[in-house]
């Protein structure tokens, strides 16, 4: 027998058992700094059940959060518990976790099936169990028909699904997906989103990180907004959005005759300001985004001008952050 390398002191004599009645993930005032840079600043968090979206700009600390959870890096201070156990010291709880890393690099020379079975065996499965489970999860992510092809031949979206499949092979209670939608084509996005929703419906705890608000809103309402290593907001996405609705918004219209359109727009009471961002673009400012959007189609019709695009340039994470931080990004 090899020594118990994961623990300090003597070998454990009792089998590892999950601590009951604890949150799946628990962060208690966790900080992580690299030299003078604080990647995580006193984050406290407890998550159990359902799909949770972790939102944040690049460098907000989403990946740091996941790496801390998965015991890949050690917190500078504070305590982390994964199923009641410190993940830095003990890899045992990973048997109940599926982790989809953000890294694009995979073993291109392997077939999807080999990839999944190899990592399934690290959960202690036999070859037979592993191949049975691999077939199951690869069909679950709709790759059943191509699973014996080499990963190197796969598109971005397919690779992402292989990664998800490999994380699901042990039937985990907690699934962590780091930017699973990044770089995927629309079809793959839909498939992956459905898979995530389904997992949530199955009662699993799912964590999904993204820097795009719309994506997360299509998957879940429960969101955590990270910014500069701190939790900025935590809760239902509708509630956060409602707060935003009281905040000045911009609508950008691309049309052939901006001046003509501007005159009609002024007729809408809720419009507080108009400017011309370029010869073909009209920028409207309002406090009541919803109301303006309702009146837009008829107003455009009345003006008789041709509108080629309507955009809400600030209806994204950045504007939420702008609002939540009081403009100090």
């Amino acid at each position: 027998m090899i020594p118990d390398v994961s623990q300090h002191g003597s070998a454990e004599t009792t089998e590892w058992k999950p601590v009951e009645n604890t949150p799946v993930i628990m962060f208690d005032r966790v900080s992580k700094s690299y030299g003078r840079i604080n990647a995580m600043n006193s984050v406290s968090l407890g998550i159990s059940g359902g799909v949770t979206g972790i939102l944040g700009m690049n460098g907000a600390g989403k990946s740091t959060l996941f790496k801390l959870m998965m015991g890949k890096i050690k917190p500078s201070s504070g305590a982390i518990r994964l199923f009641g156990t410190d993940p830095w010291k003990n890899p045992a709880p990973y048997s109940r976790v599926g982790f989809v890393p953000e890294h694009e690099k995979m073993y291109d020379w392997m077939t999807a099936f080999d990839f999944v079975t190899t990592f399934a065996r690290l959960h202690g499965m036999t070859r037979e169990e592993a191949s049975k489970e691999a077939t199951r999860v690869l069909s679950f992510v709709s790759l059943g028909d191509v699973m014996h092809k080499r990963i190197g031949q796969f598109s971005k979206g397919m690779r992402q699904r292989v990664k998800i499949a490999h994380a699901l092979v042990n039937d985990p209670e907690l699934i962590i997906l780091d930017e699973p939608l990044q770089g995927c084509d629309p079809l793959a996005r839909t498939t992956i989103m459905n898979v995530i929703k389904e997992l949530g419906a199955m009662g699993r705890t799912v964590l999904v990180s993204s820097h795009i608000l719309h994506e997360i809103e299509r998957i879940t309402e429960q969101i955590v907004i990270l910014h500069r290593g701190r939790i900025l907001a935590l809760g239902n996405s509708h509630a956060i959005r409602e707060m935003l609705d009281q905040h000045p918004h911009k609508i950008e219209l691309e049309c052939d005759e901006p001046r003509k359109l501007a005159r009609s727009m002024l007729a809408i009471d809720e419009v507080t300001g108009i400017s011309f961002s370029s010869p073909t673009k009209l920028l409207i400012e309002t406090q009541h985004l919803g109301e303006v959007h309702k009146k837009l189609p008829s107003t455009i019709m009345e003006s008789g001008s041709t509108v080629t695009a309507i955009d809400n340039p600030d209806d994204d994470l950045q504007s939420i952050l702008m609002y939540l931080t009081g403009g100090a990004l």
Binding site: V5, M70, Y107
Partner: peptide, 20 residues
């Protein structure tokens, strides 16, 4: 350096075992 170690380290296996 290629980041593929994350697949292995996310499994219930001690790092010493992995090395061995």
């Amino acid at each position: 350096s290629e980041g593929t170690i994350h697949y292995m380290l996310a499994k219930p296996i001690a790092r010493g075992e992995l090395l061995l």
